[in-house]
Design a binder for these strands. Structure first.
Lengths: 236, 236
DNA sequence: GCTCATTTCAAACGAACGTTTGAATCAGGG
DNA sequence: CCCTGATTCAAACGTTCGTTTGAAATGAGC
């Protein structure tokens, strides 16, 4: 099935196997232009491989896209769950704080953004954009990939915030994922909103350090159902 | 330039002028499949008009997309700013609450979702997805359309939260826009997160009533810069 | 050194795309 | 009634798309 050709004795950092070169090029180009607007010819040219290589190694363009996502999303979500388990074991039977749970979500993403020099950041952008893509095969794929992790984290938040009704918590988790993916996608809408310190905008750690307190406060907000109701919003 | 053919005496709800039929069909299909994956042939067939009509009336596919967005986005953002001005005038020289400012952002969006029977909800979904689209012409268009409104609202939040540094506030405004657009886009990721009460998920008013307290609490959170620092996140 | 399965390659496939063209159709004013 | 400008229409334009094909190249095992 898989070929193990040269053991790559000491080639500098160039020309890993064809499959990886396609994945790297596809990751960057999908991130830059989106799925539909990125042609296989663009990808294979950038990767320096033959056009037919994609269909040979991956089967189709859609399967290539899923392979691009799986390669990094799978380990990242596994890391998230492991980190959450570590925190929980360390806390004994006391519930975790929201900040700690959010840290279990963010740290693996940060690790990804830093480890692979450019690849990681490209991937997070790509992931943020995939969230908003209407293509059914993307939506189903993400549901499959995220299902287990989300369930674990919802349970953790549920213990951390016992006074928040389950349904309300589901919504807030949805908002958290929205703000996170929007932020990681790093769209240039930011240029409109802030006066845009470019050197800081690219610093993901600082970015998430700002996002976490924001989200933690939102998660802890009194539930509309528990504080007697009548919020001013939308009643005017 | 524009033709005013029949005054449409009492045609039930069918066959407005060609331009509107194209806009309606395009709005729904762009929402459903995205910009790149929606062909002009699909749009014109759904609208019951000739293929060439798009290029005749709008010039190109890109200009059609911008026309779809402008048609509703323009009035909505104008409504938002007017509502904010109304609230500010009513409050005299006291700063508005975060909830009130958020209401000025949400209510026009809700009005849009309700007024035009199906069109409005389609549009909000489309708008949420356009936020994440990498196409340069979309990004530039949104920057142009949103610039003025964002500036107004940032000023309002700045008065409501004088203890939050300007830069921190810019980030939080970014998070607010992210959560809002993600929520309005209404991706099915939601199906993963919550156990999904379908009849409630489609109720935008309830949805935004949950989102507003969440965001208001996040906006009011102590700034990492002002509370002496050392947050637990990311230090583990 | 031949074998055979794996991988690469140039070339082509049919389909679908956005856009253009030029004639047909229409409505209203002289 | 024809003229004029605006709109619709069928047809075709050239390009690009994802995928397939069949032969050439490759490399490990006997």
């Amino acid at each position: 099935m898989h070929r193990l050709p040269r053991a790559a004795p000491d080639l500098p950092a160039e020309s890993p196997d064809t499959k990886s070169r396609i994945l790297d090029a596809a990751e960057e180009l999908f991130m830059e232009h989106g799925f539909e607007a990125t042609s296989l010819r663009l990808i294979t040219t950038a990767a320096g491989v033959n056009l037919a290589a994609v269909n040979y190694h991956f089967g189709s363009k859609e399967e290539l896209f899923q392979a691009v996502l799986t390669r990094r999303l799978d380990p990242m979500n596994r890391d998230r769950m492991e980190l959450l388990s570590t925190y929980e074991a360390h806390a004994g039977d006391r519930p975790l704080t929201c900040e700690k749970i959010l840290a279990a979500m963010f740290i693996p993403a940060l690790r990804l953004a830093r480890d692979h020099a450019t690849g990681g950041k490209n991937f997070l952008k790509l992931l943020g954009r995939a969230y908003a893509d209407p293509a059914p095969f993307i939506r189903e794929f993400l549901s499959r990939q995220y299902g287990e992790m989300i369930a674990r984290f919802r349970a953790a938040f549920s213990r951390a915030l016992p006074h928040i009704p389950r349904e309300e918590l589901s919504w807030r988790l949805h908002f958290v994922m929205g703000a996170l993916s929007f932020t990681l996608a790093g769209t240039d809408v930011l240029r409109v909103i802030s006066q845009y310190h470019p050197d800081e905008a690219s610093n993901d750690e600082l970015l998430l350090k700002r996002l976490a307190p924001f989200l933690a406060a939102g998660l802890r907000a009194p539930s509309p159902a528990e504080d007697g109701g009548h919020h001013p919003l939308l009643d005017a």
